[in-house]
Design a protein around this nucleic acid. Structure first.
Length: 374
DNA sequence: AAAACAGACAACCGCGGCTAG
DNA sequence: ACTAGCCGCGGTTGTCTGTTT
């Protein structure tokens, strides 16, 4: 038994909105608000549209203070970094970009940013290859020296100054080549990617050896359940405390579910850019994020142990990354991006797991970020 | 000139969460 | 406790416009 349709499909207009329809919808909402019921709204104002269509039109286009196009370099960087950190959770990413809608960012990523990024990464990879091959035998993963110097961070620690340089990716050392086995699962389904990313941002401390599943278990009521939480309490208790307090939207349950986001976003801000100009983007919307940036920026050891994780042994996802290399070539961040952006498993493949993991509880939180005060 | 193609953006669709009754 | 129906999300499709052949 399927769900009843939200409106009479036969009696509803589809496709692009006319200026008249826009005017009708906008003037009504300007005067009366949405009335808390999108489904009933079109009938009320005599629009032959589905309520969902009205909502979408308002949120993505008619709503005041919406920016279209003209993404800045800072915005590009932030989107890319957040995508790496938390995946395609566009509403959360959009919450970090004032005036941008999730739909806009999603489209922008799919049509341009992804390609732009790949192009750059390929170029970097090519140019770096020769240099790295000389030192190949020095870079077995168990003997990698990790320091914040491994990160290409602009303006301060970086020795690169090219304006079109991607600044925020860690420079991965060369890993021992592992032949790609066609039978083996590649690092290309969203669940695996997500798992890896959560590990990436979620376990900075080497003192803890929690099961991966725990990371995804957002149903726990304890806010200290995640390795991500433990990391902060073990490295910098006051940092953890502030993150928890700041990211406590309304209940500890929500905070538990969102603490991963909090830390991933915080970490992303650090990865992205420790300098003020980036943080300015975030100010005005919610100074929480700039606080996070400041907090994490002052704790570079987070990144160090973060890289430790990437190169750590007996990590399933790590192996998947390594096996994702099609040849005996060294594996760089570009290869990882290739894996990240291809989802041959098709749509909705991770819905079940996500739901079971309780990761779908974030709507209220992201809404709060997106529409503070609403 | 026009057909074919490609890129960008707008809009739709279905699903799962949530909640009022 | 149950459930009908709205809300919001993210993947996908449709449409428009510019470019290439």
């Amino acid at each position: 038994m399927g769900r009843a349709p939200c409106c009479d499909k036969a009696n509803v207009k589809k496709g692009p909105w006319s200026p008249e329809e826009d005017a009708k919808l906008k003037s009504y909402i300007d005067q009366h608000g949405t009335g808390g019921n999108w489904i009933a709204l079109p009938q009320k104002i005599g629009l032959k549209r589905c309520g969902k269509s009205c909502r979408l039109r308002w949120l993505n286009y008619l709503r005041p203070n919406i920016k279209h196009g003209g993404f800045s370099e800072e915005e590009d960087n932030l989107i890319c970094s957040l995508y790496i950190s938390i995946g395609s959770r566009w509403s959360i990413i959009a919450a970090q970009l004032p005036g941008r809608t999730d739909n806009d960012i999603k489209n922008y990523w799919n049509t341009r940013l992804k390609k732009k990024l790949l192009g750059k990464q390929r170029k970097e990879h090519q140019s770096r290859k020769g240099k790295l091959q000389d030192h190949h035998h020095h870079h077995h993963h168990h003997q990698v020296k990790r320091s914040s110097g491994n990160l290409v961070v602009p303006n301060n620690t970086s020795n690169t100054n090219s304006s079109d340089q991607i600044h925020y990716w860690p420079e991965l050392p060369v890993l021992a080549p592992i032949p790609y086995s066609t039978g083996e699962q590649r690092f290309n389904d969203h669940a695996a990617i997500r798992k890896f990313l959560i590990k990436l941002g979620g376990r900075f401390s080497q003192d803890h050896d929690l099961d991966d599943v725990m990371i995804l278990d957002g149903t726990s009521s304890s806010s200290l359940q995640f390795p991500a939480d433990q990391l902060l309490s073990s490295t910098t208790p006051q940092l953890y405390e502030q993150l928890s307090i700041n990211y406590m939207p309304s209940s500890s349950m929500e905070a538990s579910n969102n603490s991963i986001d909090a830390q991933l976003i915080a970490q992303t801000l650090y990865n992205l850019d420790g300098t003020d100009h980036h943080l300015q983007v975030l100010q005005g919307q919610n100074n929480l994020h700039s606080e996070l940036g400041d907090l994490v920026y002052s704790n570079p050891q987070i990144i160090d142990s973060n890289l430790e994780l990437i190169y750590s042994e007996n990590t399933t996802v790590d192996n998947r990354i390594m096996t994702s290399a099609a040849s005996g070539e060294s594996i760089g961040w570009g290869d990882m991006m290739n894996a990240l952006i291809s989802h041959p498993a098709g749509p909705n493949y991770d819905h079940q797991e996500m739901q079971q993991a309780g990761m779908m509880q974030e709507c209220a939180f992201s809404d709060q970020l997106r529409y503070p005060g609403m």
